[in-house]
Design a protein around this nucleic acid. Sequence first.
DNA 1: TTGTACGCGTTATCAA
DNA 2: TTGATAACGCGTACAA
Lengths: 333, 333
Amino acid sequence: MSSIRDVARKANVAACTVSRVLNGTANVSPETRMRIEQAMKELNYIPNELARGMFKQKAGIIAMLVPSIRHPYFSSLAKYIEDALYQNGYKLMLCSTGDDVEREKEYLKILKSNIVDGVIMGTNSQEPEAYEHFGKPLVMLDYYVSDKVPVVVSDHAQGGFLAAQEFIKSGCKYVLHIGSEAETERVLSYESHRVLQKTLEEKGIRARELDIKWNTFDYDGYLELSKLILEKYPEIDGIMAADMPASAFLKAAVQIGKKIPEDICVVSYDGTFVSNTNILEVTTIHQPMEKIGHTSVEVLLKLLKGEELEKTYMKFPVQIKPGQTTRAHQINI
Amino acid sequence: MSSIRDVARKANVAACTVSRVLNGTANVSPETRMRIEQAMKELNYIPNELARGMFKQKAGIIAMLVPSIRHPYFSSLAKYIEDALYQNGYKLMLCSTGDDVEREKEYLKILKSNIVDGVIMGTNSQEPEAYEHFGKPLVMLDYYVSDKVPVVVSDHAQGGFLAAQEFIKSGCKYVLHIGSEAETERVLSYESHRVLQKTLEEKGIRARELDIKWNTFDYDGYLELSKLILEKYPEIDGIMAADMPASAFLKAAVQIGKKIPEDICVVSYDGTFVSNTNILEVTTIHQPMEKIGHTSVEVLLKLLKGEELEKTYMKFPVQIKPGQTTRAHQINI
DNA sequence: TTGTACGCGTTATCAA
DNA sequence: TTGATAACGCGTACAA
């Protein structure tokens, strides 16, 4: 690899003159410029971004941590974020922790080392302090740390409410909703379960939350779980779960001969393409992934510029897409 | 941010002694070590990876270019690759080109600038020369450049053959297979279409390839296309397509009242989770994504170490998973 | 065992 | 318009 000095030597100028041509920071006589450009071509010169970044004290890279990039929710989000970053001259470094606490910790450690300029956090297995005192611009997704740490999130209370309405209109009597074991008050998506439960109970409808531990993205595991649920709770006539487990449940229910939506209503939560690629149109609560992705980047860019944030809590409405797995809307195709 | 010199000053030693403690490159007296470690803690010192990388002439980052990270095939692949890289101390930088020729070009340009140590190419919209003379370790996926550029690929000929067998056993008379418009001989997945076509024709079965242009990851687009196909080719009784369009076709066919697999047999190609999350078990040709991911990394690591490759063409067998969308195997669940 | 001096590639500052 | 020099943070001969 040839350096800027090699070019300078070949063109009979000083290194800084080459730099000036490169960045257009000052006037260079057309003649000198020509000579330098010629030399750059001949040597096949490519500026060293590492050295550049070192000088400017920035790398031009933003990291995003996700539990698993395979997961459609995060891969979609990553796409929107990547697009937005690219528009602004940043590259995305994607870090998939595999739901491993240690691995997230290690990544956070590495990321402090000037290798990235900021971080978008799709994981949250650490203590809140780890995010609060990160030392670099950071945006949380779906997880509340403190009023000082910006967080971008869907209106999960609305999501829970819309789902509840759907079950109510469908005439359900006993609804199961599948949540995650690790959920604390900080995990904002938990709100959907809370509101769903409350809204149904107010109408005198039985509702029950089932918290499971799913540290892997494992469809067969969801399928097994669904079979167990159908055995253990034969009287349920409604279920809400994230896209992937909801899809598995649907499959398991059909396999044992349940009629959808006559016997059981299914509401899918998230709205990734998994909820869309089924033969049946699945009734789905859609999170505004594109909005969330764009906003995260917007906020991060502000932080990078040193601008103040007007607010650190950014919440966006969800949407319900009625389908063939609930009885509230009678849609015939 | 405190530097290595700040630590040295606080501990009353020279910077290089701190470096030695950091990297364990030489003996340091326990007493001095203690003092230094103390100072590092107090200053909350974190080594600057940028400076490190500059010195070592490597960044510790591998880039992967994909047309869209949302696509389950690439997100799964990325996951396996990320895992393998992480095991070896490398980080993954994911670049999603959005199927844009220009954007891929720009990315390739950036990636030459010492910001990454090597590249795994999931895209191939450039001229072959761009990959052949890249100047850094590079591994291609599914695309042949020359015998000098390593390529990792599934056995698509076998894939096409297995699919053909499935249609033959199912008694199909007219099979449509959906390919991509841009396919040249270099795009190795094209082989599956060639072999499918040939094998069916040899058995006297009508077969027809339909090449469409899909530069976006657009399920609704696939759905529209499927409806058109069903209108224009009402006599087909078999179809092969990638997971996503196959799923869309299945949906469209069911919606207009076709019986699966009685009226039409469907074979899905790739084996991402999209082929798995449907109510129906879809007959699927599975690419060995994990194997492909691991091998790509293995090869790249060898190149980074300067080792010679025994072979540059690495092909791995596919598998067929019989399901409910063909009549060859009668599987009842 | 520890310290000095320099190089890695780039750019900003100041002087010519 | 151009050049010399210092600086960014770290690692390694080489010297002490």
